[in-house]
């Protein structure tokens, strides 16, 4: 009985949580302008999405989303991994200060991060565009990389790096041969997390893109949704994004499981 109630509650909640997604999914296979009317099965919305009038804009948005995510994630992974090693080797007080500094972007709400960086660029007279978006993404991604890499350092034997130095390796060699292999899994997690955060971001991008014509997927969706409610093409787009996320998560999960066994 208890089990029945638990399962009934969980499945009801799940159904509610997934209802919007399901509706979007189903109605991306019909052409009706208004959601909720079914005018027969069709995949036209999917083809329209990439070839129709707005196709070029959407393709551009996807291109910029990926470009920004990859650059920001790469730089963040480098900065964050080095910082993790640095923090690990700091004295207590400096360590506390740096960890606090590192946590600010994670506590800050998106809108504050966005507005504050926007003010920085206005103050310095830097015109906004691709560079400012990438810089802002690096600012909020790097702290998460630090958090991903730190546990790897805590687990590793601190003496092997010193041993490599004692045996005649210079710091660069010791880094490449000893530290890097140990930190690699944490760096990969940090990179993937950064890519996800960057793709997911909306508020910070909106404030740092300015009036430039650069749009990421989220700002494109926002602009489109503001223009005319929910345009039909957003349905297949959402459906595709849901599917991509689902597959990505399954892959990550599968990887995690393989590693354990």
């Amino acid at each position: 009985m208890k089990k029945f109630i638990a399962n009934a509650y969980l499945w009801t909640l799940l159904t509610l949580v997934y209802a919007p997604i399901a509706i979007i999914f189903i109605f991306s296979f019909t052409e009706a302008k208004v959601l909720g009317t079914w005018t027969g099965f069709s995949t036209n919305l999917f083809t329209n999405l990439f070839e129709g009038a707005g196709g070029a804009e959407l393709n551009n948005a996807i291109y910029y989303t990926l470009l920004i995510a990859l650059i920001a994630a790469t730089v963040s992974t480098l900065l964050g991994s080095l910082a993790a090693v640095g923090i690990y080797n700091m004295r207590a007080r400096m360590k506390r200060v740096t960890i606090f500094l590192n946590s600010i972007p994670m506590i800050n709400p998106d809108i504050i991060t966005g507005i504050s960086i926007f003010m920085l660029f206005v103050f310095l007279g830097i015109s906004r565009g691709l560079l400012t978006i990438v810089l802002s993404h690096i600012a909020f991604c790097t702290p998460y990389v630090v958090l991903c890499v730190m546990p790897r350092l805590a687990k590793m034997n601190p003496n092997i790096y010193e041993a490599a130095l004692d045996l005649g390796a210079n710091p660069l060699q010791a880094f490449r041969r000893v530290l890097l292999p140990e930190l690699w899994p944490g760096m990969i997690s940090g990179f993937i997390l950064s890519v996800t955060l960057s793709i997911d971001d909306f508020a910070v991008t909106l404030f740092t893109k300015g009036s430039s014509s650069i749009d990421t997927l989220s700002t494109y969706i926002y602009a489109d949704a503001r223009k005319g409610g929910l345009t039909p093409e957003l349905r297949p787009l959402s459906a595709l994004i849901f599917l991509t996320v689902l597959i990505l998560l399954l892959v990550i999960n599968y990887r995690a499981k393989n590693k354990k066994s």
Partner: peptide, 13 residues
């Protein structure tokens, strides 16, 4: 090694 990160945080946060 944390200096570049600290510099970025000071400047952008």
């Amino acid at each position: 090694w944390a200096w570049p990160h600290i510099a970025v945080m000071l400047f952008l946060v």
